[in-house]
């Protein structure tokens, strides 16, 4: 009986380990590295989020290593990110770079933002930010995401499968941006 339990425990443990793919590990590192994650400085979708770190979708390993060596806020992270960790982070950011990004912000009484060109039948991502002190809702039915409500100053991030290269949303002023190169800033938030 005891042997069975041990076997079961071992099976469960190895099962749990096998569950996380390298890409999921990269995502976990993105949100948890150093206890606060890359997200606090680079945004929920590595799009910058109006924070100090800026846009890093598609960033290279060389660039990450440079930052870990030279950039003051990032230097302490060099001690906790192994070479494998760094590669998994870069794989995650490379994966994100292939996903067209839409950034929408609610301020001054309306939603507005920018969209990278979408690819039909491929995953696209939307990052939302409510920059006001009132709850705001946005109708994303056109994307199949339904209505999303954001608490004051809240952010949200969703993915969907694009049905066309462009889209319109009721009451949303949407501009188009070319895919942003790694290292450039594409912040729409103030």
């Amino acid at each position: 009986m005891k042997g069975l339990l041990v076997l079961l425990a071992v099976l469960l443990m190895t099962g749990a380990q096998a569950e996380e793919t390298a890409l999921e590990a990269g995502q976990r590192l993105y949100f948890e590295s150093g206890g606060y994650g890359c997200a606090v400085c680079h945004g929920l979708g590595a799009e910058g989020g109006g924070q100090a770190g800026g846009y890093i979708r598609g960033a290279s390993l060389v660039r990450l290593n440079e930052s870990l060596a030279e950039n003051d806020p990032m230097k302490p992270l060099a001690t906790v990110l192994s070479e494998t960790d760094r590669q998994m982070l870069i794989d995650y950011l490379t994966d994100l770079a292939a996903i067209p990004l839409v950034q929408l912000t609610f301020e001054n009484g309306q939603w507005s933002g920018l969209s990278e060109p979408l690819k039909v039948n491929q995953t696209a991502e939307i990052v939302l930010y409510n920059a006001t002190f009132e709850e705001q809702a946005i109708d994303l039915s056109a994307l199949g995401l339904g209505q999303i409500t954001l608490q004051p100053l809240a952010r949200d991030r969703r993915q969907w499968k694009a049905q066309s290269e462009q889209f319109t949303l009721p009451g949303v002023a949407l501009g188009e941006i070319k895919t942003v190169l790694p290292g450039a800033t594409a912040n729409t938030t103030p």
Binding site: G34, G35, Y36, M74, P76
Partner: peptide, 11 residues
């Protein structure tokens, strides 16, 4: 309360 690896927290 901070993480040991947070440089800007120390600043």
């Amino acid at each position: 309360y901070k993480s040991p690896t947070c440089g800007c927290c120390s600043e």
